[in-house]
Design a protein around this nucleic acid. Structure first.
Lengths: 157, 157
DNA sequence: AAGAGATAGTTGACTGGTCAAGTATTGTTG
DNA sequence: CAACAATACTTGACCAGTCAACTATCTCTT
């Protein structure tokens, strides 16, 4: 092993203030969590984003316009189109044109999609918990409050 | 188990425990921060990931083997190759084959790369700070500590 | 009713992340 | 020294995020 990586998790470049370090580490930590989720979700044949769309559709109960789905995701519109293309190809969602406003397509989760989600629920809930499992309840609520502040600032600024 | 979506700004799908919510919000907050950084960095003609590589190379001082760069990123190897391809095409980095071990390529930042970074430094430092700017110093240090815990758990588990 | 503008969604082109499989080179062992 | 394993990357194929430009449809004004 000829690599000169000394401290395991400190492979960060130079860091300025604590705030700068916090910003970088926030992104790193999120990537770690994301990967853990992917490891659980992808064996079921859907990606994390595809899974999120299915969850949104199940949660909504009713079919949703395409852009309403995009609005519930962090993502921008063009990505949703192709995401739904793939989900539709797998038979997990269906798109139907609105009869009144023919610009609108309503998207709904199919029975196959619901069945898939049902089969995943336990494993996914577990990994969500485990993702921040090293934190005690007080830390979890601190984290939640801090993240809300960060996200709120972004939209207001 | 309550699936209540009560707070106004949260249009998240059903959330189970606080831990599950924290995991989801962590990823959301990181995406918000990432986008803010992209908005500052990309006008300079490089992506956030490309910028990170340049920072790593500048920080290292010496040329680094390709895989040493990958190890400092959150990313896996195959991505690095193409990332460096693009940076090399822009003349911001250079790859040189090691004379002793001909499997190894050393990658270094060029003068143009250093100049680009220098022109970006102030703006980037500023956005890093602003990314979590809504937090007071106590919250920043709480966040840092919590994120370290989260990340540490991931690697150990 | 005709045209201007807004809205819903798609398409194209590029960057990036990921896996699996490939090539080139070196080190090791029988 | 020949075969085999390990190392350092590269390549191919797929999914996703993002921007700008496009089509189709609707609404509003005149």
């Amino acid at each position: 092993m000829t690599n000169q990586i000394s401290s395991p998790e400190d492979r960060l470049m130079r860091l300025g203030s604590d705030r700068q370090e916090a910003a970088v580490r926030l992104i790193q930590a999120a990537d770690v969590v994301r990967r853990r989720m992917a490891a659980v979700i992808e064996p079921y044949g859907v990606t994390v984003q595809q899974y999120n769309v299915l969850r949104i559709l199940r949660g909504a109960g009713d079919p949703l316009p395409i852009l309403a789905i995009a609005a519930r995701m962090i993502e921008h519109t063009p990505g949703i189109t192709r995401l739904l293309d793939r989900l539709e190809a797998k038979g997990l969602v269906a798109r139907v044109r609105d009869t009144k406003d023919r610009r609108v397509y309503h998207c709904s989760i199919t029975a196959a999609g619901l069945a898939l989600l049902a089969s995943m629920d336990a494993a996914v809930d577990e990994v969500d918990e485990a993702a921040v499992g090293a934190l005690n309840p007080a830390e979890v609520s601190q984290l939640l409050q801090i993240l809300k502040t960060v996200t709120a600032e972004q939209t207001s600024r």
